[in-house]
């Protein structure tokens, strides 16, 4: 019985850690939907957003105000990106855009460090990374309060964004642009407004993801690389699907913890780092559009 409880505990810890991957992946999905490009700058956006947030807190702004100001700042970043990067490159190939996002990543990393310095910051959200007593008493499970909060926040964001895309006019416009930007502009959907919305939303998601990661591991440059973990998540969930990003994140989170605990010892441990990529390769071989990716519609 304790064996089984331990297994559940590993899975739950994995699932909750997975929501963090989901959050980062969500940012990728948003931009992929609108401009069909993999946004390599997403990692830098996570870093930039949370560093800015901590910077504002250090200036003495209260938590909530700093949060709002950072969101506005990410909106500004989105606006500048639309004006200075996306608009001039409109109608260029997707590869060109991809290269541009790599460049944008370097610019954001540089800007963030120039403005706020390079040392590792501590971010205290007031939520500790320790087990919740109530859950230990009721279920006999050890679940971290920070993990649980991250899970709830991610769930909230995902539900909100899904509703936004499904039921609002902006959301409909976004889905139209995702399908065919040329046709969308021919019927009067303003592409630049849609892009601004998407980049701002991706900025907000980056900020929240950065806060969750930063609270655990400190606000530091390594956050940029963490975003790469979203790649296997996206391959499994599908690049263009919001539910896919969340489920993909959960699968990666749970499987990497389970594999680490039960199979890791045979490989000398530390398989957490590469196990997700192996899983991703299997998906690429047998289900390249991912679990929830939009199938390529081709009428014969």
């Amino acid at each position: 019985m304790t064996e089984f409880l331990f297994f559940i505990e590993v899975v739950v810890a994995g699932l909750l850690a997975g929501t963090m991957y989901s959050l980062v992946a969500l940012g990728f999905v948003l931009i992929y939907k609108a401009s069909s490009t993999f946004n390599f700058a997403q990692g830098a956006m996570v870093f930039f957003a949370v560093l800015a947030f901590v910077g504002f807190m250090e200036l003495g702004l209260p938590f909530f105000v700093a949060f709002i100001v950072t969101i506005l700042l990410m909106g500004l970043v989105g606006y500048c990106t639309e004006r200075m990067v996306l608009k001039p490159l409109m109608n260029q190939s997707e590869d060109t855009l991809l290269m541009a996002t790599i460049g944008l990543g370097f610019v954001l990393e540089g800007l963030a460090q120039a403005a706020w310095g390079v040392e590792v910051r501590r971010l205290d959200l007031g939520i500790g990374d320790f087990p919740i007593q109530w859950i230990i008493d009721t279920f006999g499970l050890f679940v971290s309060a920070l993990d649980l909060t991250a899970g709830l926040v991610a769930a909230f964001l995902i539900i909100g964004l899904s509703l936004l895309f499904k039921y609002t006019k902006m959301g409909l416009g976004l889905r139209a642009v995702a399908d065919d930007p040329g046709a969308a502009s021919s019927i009067g959907i303003p592409l630049n407004n849609i892009m601004l919305l998407v980049w701002t939303a991706a900025g907000v998601v980056a900020l929240v993801a950065g806060m969750m990661w930063g609270a655990r591991a400190g606000v530091q440059f390594a956050l940029v690389d963490l975003a790469l973990k979203a790649l296997p998540v996206l391959i499994i969930g599908g690049f263009s699907s919001i539910p896919g990003a969340i489920i993909g994140g959960l699968i990666i989170g749970a499987s990497e913890k389970v594999l680490e605990v039960y199979i890791g010892p045979y490989f000398g441990g530390a398989i957490e780092g590469w196990a997700p990529y192996v899983l991703a390769i299997f998906f690429l071989l047998y289900r390249p559009e991912g679990l929830f990716g939009e199938k390529i519609i081709r009428r014969v």
């Binding site: 889905r175 065919d180 040329g182 046709a183 519609i297």
Partner: peptide, 14 residues
């Protein structure tokens, strides 16, 4: 150039 992933009615609404 219809929006393939949207429904017919959603297409019209766009």
């Amino acid at each position: 150039r219809c929006f393939g992933h949207l429904t017919v009615e959603e297409n019209i609404i766009t």
